[in-house]
């Protein structure tokens, strides 16, 4: 009985580990990379096995050798299973399929130019590397493709960059929190960003003519989590209170104003003052502190003509006193420029 329980425990744990490993994408080691180097050293040319490469266009089937090609030399196979099931990395066919889907590339034009020297691009052959697909840098080493890259002509090779989820390895910087960190990097390297991103990508956040529209269309893509996804509408007031300057980086006072007006949130006197008791007064006076902390919130209702409300009390000589901080200086002419002249002009 005890033995049966132990056996059951071993089987159950093995199945659980196998299921977890499958879910996490962890694969058992395959037979290792295909023995390309050994074949080359034996004097077998690449095109002897990859026969269909000579005519392979960008829409042709993936040019992996068939079992029949192997049997032409290995006349007595030791096994009935397909050769590539053990000889070669198991992901190779999958990766090649992805490349076929997302890259516009044909061997038929490249092979003659290289005079059959495939290793010039497939450098991994010499190192017995698991991945033989050339990295983008290898493509750019040729003058024509270097020019394509310089002018960001991605479409020449990448069929649909937006849909291509396999990103270059250097894009590790686009991690989960990248949305907040990208500003500093984009400042110095906007040119690099434009390699993949269009004006629309930037305008999705920074544009002021319905910026969130492109994201709003992606109902079914929760992984495209912008700053304002999920329940942002409910918590935006809290977030603005925590760090109002973060809102200001993209939004203007009109952003708040137009939405609050449309949704009838604290926009007209019929709703009464949204401010707590003691907001403005002689004994208790919180509004100055809050205005310094979150000027956008004030400006979203009191901006434009509403700023006269401030001027009524704080103009020079009025009882509100100077609103400027100690040591305040400005390059503006206080008698002529807006907003200085509202308070300072005689």
């Amino acid at each position: 009985m005890e033995r049966a329980v132990k056996r059951f425990a071993v089987i159950a744990s093995s199945l659980t580990f196998a299921a977890c490993a499958t879910l996490l994408g962890i694969r058992p080691p395959s037979g290792g990379p295909f023995e390309h180097r050994a074949h080359v050293l034996d004097g077998i040319a690449c095109l002897d096995c990859h026969t269909s490469i000579r005519t392979a266009t960008s829409s042709a089937a993936v040019a992996l050798p068939t079992d029949r090609a192997c049997w032409s030399c290995h006349e007595t196979p030791h096994d009935r299973r397909p050769c590539l099931q053990c000889h070669g990395d198991r992901d190779t066919a999958h990766r090649t399929d992805l490349a076929r889907t997302y890259l516009s590339f044909d061997h038929v034009t490249h092979v003659p130019r290289l005079d059959g020297n495939c290793v010039r691009c497939h450098v991994g052959v010499a190192e017995e590397s698991a991945s033989l697909m050339p990295k983008m840098g290898v493509c750019l080493a040729c003058h024509a493709h270097e020019d394509d890259f310089e002018v960001r002509d991605c479409d020449r090779c990448h069929v649909d960059l937006e849909a291509e989820t396999v990103r270059p390895s250097s894009h590790a910087v686009h991690a989960d929190d990248f949305v907040r960190q990208h500003g500093a990097q984009a400042a110095a390297s906007a040119d690099l960003c434009r390699t993949c991103h269009t004006e629309r990508d930037c305008a999705s956040c920074h544009g002021i003519a319905v910026p969130a529209l492109p994201w709003r269309f992606e109902l079914e893509n929760p992984r495209r989590a912008g700053l304002h996804r999920a329940g942002f509408v409910a918590r935006h007031a809290t977030e603005a209170r925590v760090d109002a300057s973060a809102c200001l980086s993209c939004h203007t006072r009109e952003t708040c104003q137009s939405c609050h007006a449309r949704e009838q949130v604290a926009t007209t006197s019929s709703f009464g003052s949204p401010h707590p008791p003691g907001w403005v007064g002689i004994g208790s006076n919180r509004h100055g502190i809050e205005a310094r902390r979150d000027p956008l919130s004030c400006a979203s209702c009191h901006g434009g003509a509403g700023e006269q409300l401030c001027v009524d009390c704080h103009a020079v000589g009025r009882f509100g006193g100077s609103p400027h901080p100690p040591g305040y200086t400005s390059s503006k002419n206080r008698a002529q420029d807006v907003p200085c002249r509202w308070c300072h002009a005689p």
Binding site: A184, R293, Y328
Partner: peptide, 28 residues
């Protein structure tokens, strides 16, 4: 591993035509 240090002055980010840009601010 990445790090980010940031300073923002809200009144200076506002357009300087707003009266709220002359108050000084509590920087973040």
């Amino acid at each position: 591993l990445s790090g980010l240090a940031q300073h923002r002055s809200p009144s200076r980010i506002l357009l300087a035509t707003s009266v709220f840009s002359v108050l000084g601010d509590v920087a973040s």
